[in-house]
Simulated assay, not measured.
Amino acid sequence: MTSTVFLQRIADLYDEFKQHDARQSDRLKRYRNIEAESAKLLAMLVRSQQSKRILEIGTSTGYSTLWLAEAAKAVGAKVQTLEINAFRSAQAKKYAEEFGLEHFIDFWVGDASVYLAEANDPFDFILLDAERGSYVSYWEDLKRLMQSCGSSLIIDNVISHAAEVKEMLELIRLDDNFMSTILPVGAGLCLVVAR
C-alpha cells in the first residue's frame, strides 16, 4: 500500500470510527480512538527515534495500531498491542489485514496488567491509551519496561481528562529517572522519556 493510499484509507477509517462514536450514548460502546493528529505524531516519533520494539496498551479497533504498524514497517520494527476486549481486538486485526500490516503487529487479548507484570524485554516506544483508572497500577511495570535511556512513553488524553490522569502524571513528575512534558496535540499527549 503506497503512502498516499494509506493516508486516504486511514482518513476514511477515522471518519467511520468518529461517526460510530457519535451514535453511541454509552461511553464504553464508543471506540474512543486517538485523534488523527495524535496518531500521525506517534508515527513520526517512531520513525524519528527508529523505535524497534513498540508497545500499545489499548488497541480498541486499531486506528492508532495501524499508524504505529505503518511506521514500524518503515523502520523494521514490530508492534505489540494489548486489548482487553476480544471483539475489538478481532476488529483491529481485520483492519490490519485490509491494510496489509498484520505481519508488523502482535495482537494480545487480556488485562494489560497481566501482560505488563510478565513482560521482561524493554520497549523503546510505549503508547498508553486505555482505561485511565488503571494507569497508576501500571507505572512500576512501565518503568521497568523503559529501561534504556531514550525510551519513550506517550500517554493520551492528558488535557481532555486531566483529573483522571493527574495522579499518574504526578508519579512521573516526582521520579528523577524520567523527564516529561505535555504536548497540546489532539486530546493532549504526555511525552515521558527515560533519562
Rank of each mutant, 00 (worst) to 15 (best):
133 G>D: 05
65 T>Y: 06
63 Y>D: 02
16 E>F: 14
77 A>R: 00
49 Q>A: 13
63 Y>N: 01
35 E>W: 10
35 E>F: 05
159 I>Q: 03
134 S>D: 12
9 R>E: 15
131 E>C: 11
120 N>Y: 03
143 K>Y: 07
138 Y>G: 01
119 A>Q: 12
32 R>Q: 12
183 L>R: 02
50 Q>F: 10
19 Q>F: 08
104 F>Q: 05
134 S>K: 14
60 S>W: 00
148 S>T: 15
189 L>Q: 08
103 H>F: 10
128 L>V: 10
184 P>A: 11
141 D>S: 15
2 T>S: 15
3 S>W: 07
71 A>I: 06
139 W>K: 04
107 F>S: 00
119 A>I: 09
162 A>E: 13
49 Q>V: 10
92 A>N: 05
136 V>E: 13
107 F>V: 04
142 L>W: 00
111 D>N: 14
85 N>I: 09
73 K>I: 02
8 Q>G: 14
54 I>M: 04
76 G>F: 13
35 E>T: 11
182 I>P: 01
43 A>K: 04
61 T>S: 09
138 Y>K: 06
178 F>R: 01
92 A>G: 06
15 D>H: 11
114 V>I: 07
65 T>N: 03
194 A>L: 03
13 L>E: 11
32 R>I: 02
51 S>T: 07
48 S>K: 06
146 M>Y: 04
193 V>N: 03
20 H>G: 07
132 R>P: 01
103 H>A: 15
166 K>T: 11
116 L>Q: 06
191 L>A: 15
4 T>V: 10
129 D>A: 08
22 A>H: 03
165 V>Y: 02
62 G>T: 00
68 L>C: 03
88 R>Q: 13
188 G>F: 09
70 E>I: 05
140 E>G: 00
56 E>H: 03
65 T>V: 12
169 L>H: 08
67 W>E: 05
119 A>C: 13
76 G>W: 13
67 W>C: 08
177 N>M: 12
127 L>K: 03
160 S>Q: 05
140 E>A: 13
67 W>D: 01
130 A>L: 02
117 A>H: 11
12 D>Y: 08
160 S>R: 09
171 L>V: 12
40 K>Q: 14
74 A>P: 00
73 K>P: 12
22 A>I: 03
150 G>M: 07
61 T>R: 10
167 E>K: 15
57 I>A: 09
162 A>I: 09
31 Y>R: 05
16 E>Q: 14
79 V>D: 05
37 E>T: 07
182 I>Q: 04
31 Y>A: 06
63 Y>R: 01
167 E>H: 13
52 K>D: 00
103 H>W: 07
32 R>S: 11
9 R>I: 08
16 E>D: 13
37 E>W: 02
113 S>I: 14
118 E>T: 15
170 E>K: 15
67 W>L: 04
1 M>K: 08
22 A>L: 11
81 T>A: 01
136 V>A: 13
185 V>R: 00
152 S>N: 12
7 L>V: 06
67 W>V: 05
190 C>E: 06
29 K>E: 02
6 F>W: 03
84 I>Q: 08
126 I>G: 00
52 K>Q: 14
147 Q>I: 11
105 I>Y: 02
84 I>C: 10
137 S>F: 04
191 L>E: 12
49 Q>N: 15
80 Q>R: 11
8 Q>E: 14
59 T>Q: 04
158 V>Q: 01
82 L>D: 05
67 W>P: 04
99 F>M: 06
79 V>Y: 06
185 V>I: 15
148 S>Q: 15
88 R>C: 05
157 N>S: 07
